[in-house]
Amino acid sequence: MTGAADVRSTGPGRWFHRPAPWPDARLRLVCVPHAGAGAAAYGAWGDRLPADVELVGVRLPGRENRLREPPFHDWPSLTGAFADALDEQVRSPYVLFGHSMGAMLVYETVVRGTGRRPERVILSGCRAPAVRRALPAIHGLPDERFREELGRLAGTPREVLADPRLMAVLEPMLRADIRLAETWSHRDPPPVPVPVTTFRGADDEVAPAEAVAAWRTLAPRGIRSHRVPGGHFCLHDRAPEFFRLLARELSLC
Rank of each mutant, 00 (worst) to 15 (best):
L141W: 02
L141Q: 00
L141M: 02
P142F: 08
D143Q: 09
D143F: 05
D143G: 11
E144M: 11
E144L: 10
E144H: 14
E144Y: 10
R145A: 14
R145K: 15
F146C: 04
F146L: 11
F146N: 08
F146G: 02
R147H: 12
R147N: 12
R147T: 12
R147I: 09
R147L: 14
R147V: 09
E149I: 08
E149G: 03
L150T: 03
L150G: 02
L150C: 06
L150Y: 05
G151C: 11
G151Y: 13
G151N: 13
G151I: 12
G151S: 13
R152G: 13
R152C: 02
R152M: 05
R152N: 07
L153E: 07
L153P: 09
L153N: 04
A154Y: 09
A154L: 15
A154M: 14
A154G: 15
G155W: 06
G155V: 08
T156H: 05
T156I: 14
T156E: 07
T156N: 04
T156D: 06
P157T: 07
P157V: 06
P157Y: 06
P157M: 10
R158F: 03
R158C: 01
R158K: 15
E159W: 09
E159M: 11
E159R: 12
E159I: 11
E159C: 08
E159K: 12
V160E: 02
V160H: 10
V160G: 04
L161T: 00
L161A: 01
L161V: 00
A162V: 00
D163Y: 11
D163T: 05
P164Q: 08
P164M: 04
P164E: 08
P164K: 12
R165L: 15
R165P: 11
R165H: 15
R165Q: 15
R165T: 13
R165M: 12
L166K: 02
L166H: 02
L166N: 01
L166F: 01
L166D: 00
M167K: 14
M167N: 12
A168N: 09
A168F: 04
A168K: 06
A168L: 03
V169Y: 07
V169S: 04
V169F: 10
V169I: 13
V169H: 08
L170R: 08
L170V: 06
E171I: 04
E171V: 01
P172C: 08
P172T: 03
M173Y: 14
M173W: 12
M173I: 09
M173H: 15
M173L: 12
L174C: 00
L174P: 02
L174Y: 01
L174F: 01
L174I: 00
L174R: 01
L174K: 00
